[in-house]
Design a protein around this nucleic acid. Structure first.
Lengths: 346, 346
DNA sequence: ATGAGTTCTGCAACCGGTTTCACAAGACTG
DNA sequence: CAGTCTTGTGAAACCGGTTGCAGAACTCAT
């Protein structure tokens, strides 16, 4: 008598599911457990009941309540995906790959952008945890490894663009250095010796690795490294434009430019265009990432390709494996040079 | 005696939350209700208890279980966002806008791609419902209005690019026709009379509206509409390339081309480039959408701008209003022409 | 016909927060 | 100083699926 029998008290303003599993059970004249078993196919149920339950489900277009199921199952079938900016063509392609694989496996993706800064990334990661994702995919961010390991205690994490051995974690490194040497060997093979490098943002690991590849290839060909042929960009078109413009205005001469990524190359294109220089007649240009738009730039851009889409697909496969307690067995996609019309023999 | 007292039976392999609200309650020497009230700030709690509870929360870095809370609250703080392709530069910008506003309001976004086909869109919508989203934002898809109204019975929907008055629904139309006439008046004002139109995919409502605007502007200037100056594209670079190439090869002459969107214009650029024609010296080109990359094309592209990013932000505001039971009060962003270097006086 | 071995099925106990309600204790009235 | 009005708090009933366990029903040998 301490509490009145439930049902008497007035309902709060809380939204409720129209039709519940128990409603279906009542209508079909079976127990709730049976309905659940039919929906999930966990154990065999007599054809007769199955039919009547399925009829009731169809009649009301019943869909199990996601949160309730998530609570009971302990999983939400949701994966958090952290990129730096959802509207960056580079990450967008990766997200696309992730989306495809996850969807096929019945998972949905929660996308958030880290905006190239630690605080935002941290915030996104907490949000993911708070939303109860089953796993997280990180596209190479700037979060320190220690922080990642810490998050990995709460849910499995796949990270691209770095090597991070830790429990509940899997990494898919990007072959920056190899890609950069491919690009450089191509230019050097065409007879270029004064090759500018339009760099990415300072201290960014991928940017540094690509610079290292640039230097490695120079050394390999016995060409002296000239620091003044390296200009600082920011991975974006604007950075490539400014860096290349400054390089040109400073009077430095070069016959080719290797850009840290395609967006930078597009900026460089505009700088050269404004200076009245033609690609590839006056300057050869090579990019990195092979964005879809690069085959439509004028002229179509020669670029290093390590398919980000495939990288995304592999990352998705890896996280699905981790979520299911299996050890992932996937490799980062291969690196190759796609030669188009922006490079020519000197 | 029918069932053994709980706790005896062995635990299943089901994953469990490390620390629950009741653990915190026990540790702080209060009841679960009190902890919940402190976390949500729903009612005042004595400072003393508050402190000890907060200490316990901090000690274990406790985070409430999302599914449990979602079940009790009846909301998941998740919004489904349907676009056609997450890696399309057009939609990506919209998604970015959505993401910003939602994040600020404590919501997360579930993104899915409809791939320009009804079946996939339908599938995505069902997935959203199954995941228990609190609302859905649709970027102009091909789902029939009736289907949308049907989904709107289950959760509020904001749709861009169409006009759809229905309960639990809000629409943000895109001013296709107005934008198209702006572009055309600009070209006509520069003295162009033979203006090609590189269209979008057949039957697409936005494509048709833009075509209508093209015709309207011609009529306004007393220029006869010539069907053979209209070529069918597909909203993508490839379609623009093919359509423009065919137009050129068929010997049709034109001094300007209005493209249904910027991606199509980029394809047209390449076709003109290959044909040895220069923009804008030989042909003036105008696009639609003003993608970020269009200011870096060669030459920078004149385009109609109705900020998709802002459209996304407004859509997010609208869905938040609907979710909270308020009537949205937002307008689609304004349309304007951004003149760059791809058009010139005849 | 009887006992053992299979299926199926339902009850009730979870999953982990939120919230109603009752009640105790303290703050005000008159 | 009794009587009403706050306040703060905990017990227990939700939210809506899932699942371990026990027992019913139905097989098949013996």
């Amino acid at each position: 008598m301490k509490t009145p029998p439930r049902g008497e008290s007035k309902r709060g303003p809380r939204p409720r599911q129209l039709v519940t599993l128990r409603d279906i059970a009542r209508e079909a004249g079976v127990s709730a457990s049976t309905v659940s078993r039919i929906i999930n196919g966990t154990v065999k149920v007599s054809d007769e009941r199955k039919a009547s339950v399925e009829a009731a489900i169809a009649k009301h277009d019943f869909r199990p309540h996601a949160a309730a199921r998530g609570l009971a199952l302990g999983r939400t079938f949701t994966i958090g995906v952290l990129s730096q900016a959802i509207d960056s063509p580079f990450y967008a392609e990766g997200l696309r790959g992730v989306e495809r694989r996850l969807l096929a496996a019945g998972y949905a993706a929660l996308f958030m952008s880290g905006n190239w800064n630690v605080a935002d990334e941290q915030r996104c990661m907490r949000k993911f945890i708070d939303h109860g994702v089953d796993g997280i995919i990180m596209f190479s961010g700037c979060l320190p490894n220690a922080a990642i390991k810490d998050f990995a205690k709460r849910c499995p994490i796949v990270v691209t663009g770095r090597h991070l051995p830790a429990p509940q974690t899997y990494s898919l490194p990007i072959k920056d250095r190899l890609g950069a040497t491919l690009a450089m060997r191509h230019l050097i093979g065409l007879g270029h010796r004064r090759i500018a490098f339009i760099a990415g943002s300072e201290n960014h690991p991928d940017a540094l690795e690509r610079l290292a590849g640039y230097r490695e290839a120079l050394q390999e060909a016995h060409i002296a490294f000239e620091p003044r042929l390296v200009a600082q960009g920011d991975w974006q078109e604007s950075g490539g434009l400014i860096a290349t413009t400054q390089l040109l205005e400073s009077g430095r001469t070069f016959t080719a430019a290797f850009c840290v990524n395609d967006q930078t190359a597009h900026g460089a294109y505009l700088a050269l265009f404004r200076a009245g220089l033609k690609v590839p007649d006056d300057v050869s240009v090579v990019g990195f990432d092979d964005l879809p738009s690069s085959s439509y730039s004028l002229p179509p851009l020669t670029s290093v390709r390590q398919s980000v889409r495939v990288l995304g697909e592999r990352a998705a496969e890896a996280i699905l494996a981790l979520v299911c307690g299996r050890r992932p067995r996937v490799e980062p996609p291969p690196v190759e040079l796609v030669v188009r019309d922006s490079t020519r023999r000197l």
